[in-house]
């Protein structure tokens, strides 16, 4: 009951936030000096041509009027038409979304595995040189953002020891049998592991760049709460029962220590997704973020709006999911 109430409240605030995002993007990008329509027409275009196209995209109306028309369209699933690519925004955006999702989820999985392993190892070997080393590595990883890690990775694994691809999502010459844009997932489902390998070798470095800061945060926070949990009475009691230290950490401490980390990972995951914008650019990875930068540079107003709204939906959605998971994992909340 209380859970349902929280959920409803969260849905309302989420809607308000999304509306705010829509208003801000919509008005901000319309302050742009220069007519995007004039930019897309060939140099010889007449004023009549420009006016005609401007009217076609509805850009001749007042800004509040435009917002109303756009808003009504969005509620019907119509995000308008991209000015530069001349296709429906929704189709374009949903076409790129899988690439970004695959990249972010891959990075998240890496971060959780590496960060989790670091935290568990650090706890198992607490107060040794190993823990000190883990702390220093975490500190370094945290101090430098994904953009710089991406550049370092390009230098090291793209140029110095060229073992991974540093550009694109897939080798362009390959024949792709895919019907969805979830290439990685589909290549596995179709058992085309040659393609999986190619996709992974493109995805690996950008994913690592995105994962490094998050892995460090997970490592640090989880280790800290694990170490605090290790002093609690029920852990001490479990230790008298004959279990190995590793099992005590895994079975007794971890389930309780993981909750604060989980909330943080949720927020941090949205930061990671935000990071895909520049990382995709850096690795010429054909995802949403890369498309967003192109849209901004080309003043493609409907496309910019669509992408920003989609990002905002993802961000708020992730936060919502995290809150619900938190409630589901915590027996005290679950049983009210």
């Amino acid at each position: 009951m209380a859970l349902l109430q929280t959920l409803l409240l969260r849905l309302v605030t989420t809607a308000v936030t999304l509306f705010g995002v829509a208003v801000i993007v919509f008005f901000v990008i319309r302050v742009v000096p220069g007519n995007p329509i004039a930019m897309m027409l060939p140099p010889g275009a007449t004023q009549a041509d420009i006016d005609q196209l401007t009217a076609l995209y509805g850009l001749d109306k007042s800004i509040p009027q435009q917002f109303l028309i756009w808003g009504l369209g969005v509620l019907h699933g119509d995000f308008g038409t991209s000015i530069t690519l001349r296709q429906p925004v929704l189709a374009l955006v949903l076409g790129r979304l899988p690439a970004t999702l695959e990249l972010s989820v891959m990075a998240l999985v890496m971060a959780v595995l590496v960060g989790g392993a670091a935290a568990l190892t650090g706890t198992r070997l607490r107060a040794t040189k190993v823990e000190g080393g883990i702390d220093i590595a975490n500190g370094m990883a945290l101090s430098v953002p994904d953009f710089l890690w991406g550049l370092v990775l390009i230098l090291v694994f793209g140029v110095l020891v060229p073992v991974f691809q540093i550009s694109g999502r897939v080798t362009p010459s390959l024949q792709l049998p895919f019907v969805t844009n979830f290439y990685l997932v589909e290549s596995i489902v179709r058992l085309r592991f040659d393609l999986t390998k190619d996709l992974l070798s493109h995805m690996f470095l950008p994913a690592v760049a995105l994962a490094i800061p998050l892995a460090a945060i997970i490592g640090q926070l989880l280790k800290q709460s694990l170490k605090e949990t290790m002093h609690l009475d029920y852990v001490t009691l479990a230790r008298t029962q004959g279990y190995s230290e590793a099992r005590v950490i895994w079975r007794e401490a971890l389930p309780n220590a993981i909750l604060p980390t989980l909330t943080l990972v949720g927020v941090q995951f949205t930061f990671l997704i935000g990071g895909t914008v520049i990382i995709e650019r850096l690795f010429s990875y054909e995802g949403l973020g890369n498309m967003a930068i192109d849209a901004v540079i080309n003043r493609d107003l409907p496309l910019i709006q669509g992408i920003v709204i989609l990002f905002a939906v993802i961000f708020t959605g992730v936060n919502l999911v995290v809150d619900l998971t938190y409630a589901a994992l915590n027996p005290r909340l679950r049983h009210g």
């Binding site: 009475d233 479990a238 008298t240 029962q241 004959g242």
Partner: peptide, 23 residues
């Protein structure tokens, strides 16, 4: 560890903190 776990046991002082809350 195993020998103690198999043949000894502890009755702790504070029952409120000695059970794992998430299990």
């Amino acid at each position: 560890r195993i020998r103690v776990g198999a043949s000894c046991a502890l009755i702790p002082q504070d029952p409120l903190t000695a059970l794992n809350p998430s299990r």
